[in-house]
Design a protein around this nucleic acid. Structure first.
Lengths: 230, 230
DNA sequence: GACATGAATGGATCGCCGTTCCAACATGGG
DNA sequence: CCCATGTTGGAACGGCGATCCATTCATGTC
């Protein structure tokens, strides 16, 4: 029997890129990166995958838009007039917290930074370094180092979150890695064996900030010797 | 007609995890990350995908083994007895060059570092910082910052390589991004607009090394004030 | 030398993915 | 009123990672 099905009726709640991105963020936050498929998205929006492609170029486009939204919220909330160094630390921590809350943002930032919110991050760090008095010739490298640190930690956090998903607990997961590290060859891995114990108890957020401070200290040292490589 | 096909005959050139990983590296180097599929691998080895799964747990296992091999080659070639700071710079550059030559290594390092050669990298940096006289309490954070910088750049290089693949030339690609940056709102993005011109002409390797030097300078400053946070 | 055993093989198959295609509608302008 | 246009939703496509399984061979046993 050839059944003529009821076909698409125009919806009252119109589909739009904004609504699609919003739904995508909900799915990503709820189920992680693996949960975002066009089928799940279509089900969530009660439509078909074809309709979504009318508003969105492809999955990268969708992920970039979702990431952009989250990062923009962090950067624009950072309108304070604190001293430059404190502003840099605050921006870095804001990004860290956003990535920590939405691990898929970390994946996207380290996978396709050009598509996402890179200019916003660059501007946030760079303009503050300018205020700090970093010489123009070193501004690009110094800013890039801060940005790389954020993107690097973003990728690591995302990788960790991907592994946590299958396990119970973060400390238990790091503990099992610490055990592996502690059992390495003492002749070949003396340092790794020594720090293994710190792995399960260390605070990612504090370690991230310690890295930012280290880089900022290096930048401060740079200011005192303007041309270190003659 | 029920055709009884010729079935698998035992091979003289035995399949092994080593041979599989070797073939995987060849495919990855030749065609990039996207080229490594179990079908392509089976064709390359003149076998079926089922046979490969007998030696390899899954794709992550295969990628981890391939990455491990490349990184191990870099780290073990670094047996020199140079001064600690020079040794750290040399190790960092060696890793950078390996990632540059095999972009898929960068992807894997930033995507699943725990599976891969993380302890080797950690040991390489950490033991040299110990030699440098970095106080024990700061060694873990300092080492992590160096490692994060390497992993962060690894991810970025891999992301760039992924985009180069479709384009002709690296400078042209960065040039098009620089154009976008130069056209951003002057009120909102003064810094980004100013550094946009440097984007297409800057040297990734030098910038990476500048970041390492910045971090090392910060670590040197740390040595002069042993307990910055009382 | 015949046979049982289990490691190893390779091709078919499964379920899911991103993406494309297209017939079926809704709506506003002529 | 009717058609052109913009949208919708679901079927279909090719390809992926992974699994399944009939089949083969090397080896140990008697």
């Amino acid at each position: 029997m050839a059944i003529k099905k009821q076909r698409a009726a125009r919806r009252t709640d119109a589909l739009s890129k904004e609504r699609i991105v919003e739904a995508a963020i909900e799915i990503l936050d709820a189920g992680g990166e693996g949960a975002l498929t066009f089928r799940a998205l279509a089900a969530h929006l009660a439509t078909g995958s074809g309709a979504i492609y009318w508003h969105v170029a492809d999955k990268d486009d969708l992920l970039a838009a979702a990431t952009d939204g989250v990062v923009a919220r962090v950067v624009t909330d950072m309108t304070d007039g604190a001293r430059p160094r404190e502003a840099i630390r605050a921006l870095a921590l804001g990004l860290f917290d956003a990535i920590d809350a939405h691990p898929w943002v970390g994946t996207q930032l380290s996978r396709a930074p050009w598509l996402a919110a890179l200019p916003q991050i660059f501007e946030g760090f760079g303009s503050r370094l300018e205020e700090l008095g970093v010489p123009g010739s070193a501004q690009f490298d110094a800013t890039s180092t801060l940005v790389i640190h954020v993107l690097g930690v973003a990728g690591q956090n995302a990788a960790n979150a991907r592994l946590h998903a299958h396990r119970t607990d973060r400390t238990a997961f790091l503990g099992s890695i610490a055990d592996q590290w502690a059992q390495l060859d003492p002749a070949q891995y003396p340092f790794v064996r020594r720090v293994a114990a710190q792995l399960p108890v260390h605070d990612d957020r504090e370690q991230f900030l310690a890295g930012i401070d280290l880089i900022l200290d290096g930048i401060a040292a740079l200011r005192q010797k303007p041309t270190p490589r003659p």
